[in-house]
Amino acid sequence: MPEIIETTVYQLHELSNAAKDKARDWYRRVGFDFDWYDAVYDDFERICAILGVSLATRTVRLFGGGVRPKPCIWFSGFWSQGDGACFEGHYRHAKGAAPHIRAYAPQDTELHRIADSLQAAQRRNFYQLQATVTHRGRYYHEQCMAISVERDSPTGQDTSRDAEDIVIEAMRDLARWLYRQLEREYDDQTSDASIDDAICASAYTFTEEGRRFG
């Protein structure tokens, strides 16, 4: 015969500290099945545009059956030695990149440094430097980017002695910068305070031991 079993359930704030930790661990396992990094990607796209990097795109299918372009950005993280971020695209001189990046991100000295190094290399090469960035291999970090630099000179002039190395390192530094933003965003979204807010907003309930109910 059917039986009715009563279970007492609790809101997060009603649990013991140990049970709260178990509830948070449950949410960290199941609550991040969405593109939590979209805001970081959007910011990175704007920064790339300022610096003169046109990100390559790929076509992805939507749940409704349509398609949309998505920037070629990848990352893995955040616990292994080989973790990192990388991207694909094409770089060319962007006029006013240094002052524009300072206006966009006035406190970010790393972005200022990247813009300044690119500007200096471009100046020595009459603003003719270009670079193509592609991903290679099965890992996702800055060393997985193949970067070819050339000078679009109408007279066939070669790049200055250090220009290629400067542009390559700037692209890798940009990927390192992206990874740090992703790591910071992930740490923020998975902090106890953020998890608690998400659990409370969804009105999840738990058993006394912190197991999700329902």
Rank of each mutant, 00 (worst) to 15 (best):
V167E: 01
I5S: 09
G77K: 05
E185G: 02
G82H: 13
A49T: 13
D197W: 09
C144P: 00
D25C: 15
D162M: 03
D196V: 01
D165S: 14
R212I: 12
Y41W: 12
S148N: 13
V30A: 13
F126P: 02
R24N: 03
Y104V: 01
R92C: 14
I73G: 02
D116I: 04
D188G: 11
R212Q: 08
A97V: 02
Y41D: 15
T159G: 07
I166S: 00
G65P: 06
W36Q: 01
D33N: 12
D162Y: 12
Y91S: 00
R124T: 05
A94D: 06
T7V: 14
S202Y: 06
Y91H: 05
R92E: 15
V149F: 00
A115M: 06
Q143E: 15
I50R: 05
I73E: 03
Q107I: 06
V167Y: 01
L178R: 00
E110W: 11
R180A: 08
A203N: 14
D192H: 13
R102K: 13
Y37P: 02
D165H: 15
F213R: 11
Q181I: 01
T134V: 14
E45Y: 07
E88F: 01
Q189G: 06
G89W: 00
R180C: 07
G84Q: 03
S191E: 06
C48N: 02
P106V: 03
G210I: 05
A163H: 04
W79C: 07
D83F: 00
F206S: 03
W177C: 12
Q181F: 03
S191D: 11
E88W: 01
Q122I: 05
A19C: 09
E88N: 01
E6D: 13
E3Q: 10
R58V: 15
H100A: 15
K70V: 14
F34P: 03
R136Q: 08
R180M: 12
E209H: 09
A131P: 02
R161Q: 15
K22W: 07
S202G: 12
L111H: 04
D38R: 15
A19H: 05
T57Y: 06
R58E: 15
N125L: 01
R176Y: 15
Y91D: 05
T205C: 11
V30E: 13
I114K: 04
R211V: 10
E3C: 02
T155G: 07
E208D: 14
D197M: 10
Q157W: 10
G210D: 02
